[in-house]
């Protein structure tokens, strides 16, 4: 999929663990892992909103479009 989720980059910048972020956002660590490893098919606006809120960032900081080779 050409949409890349840069969640791990933002988590490293904010120095937050996966478990803590999952708890703050209100999703399971397994689902956060799916998101982090670019396995997700779609992201709900509510999840994106919670992620942006907890990581103090914009959606564009988390999502990136990269053309497929």
């Amino acid at each position: 999929m050409p949409i890349i989720v840069n969640l791990d980059v933002m988590m490293a910048r904010r120095k937050i663990s996966a478990g803590e972020l999952a708890e703050r956002v209100g999703i399971t660590p397994a689902n956060l892992s799916i998101l982090k490893n670019n396995k997700a098919r779609a992201v709900r606006f509510s999840t994106l909103e919670a992620l942006c809120r907890e990581l103090s960032c914009q959606p564009a900081d988390l999502l990136e479009y990269r053309e497929e080779e």
Binding site: I27, A42, R44, T47
Partner: peptide, 8 residues
């Protein structure tokens, strides 16, 4: 179901 399971 796959689509739903991978919608976070």
């Amino acid at each position: 179901k796959d689509e739903n399971d991978f919608t976070i």
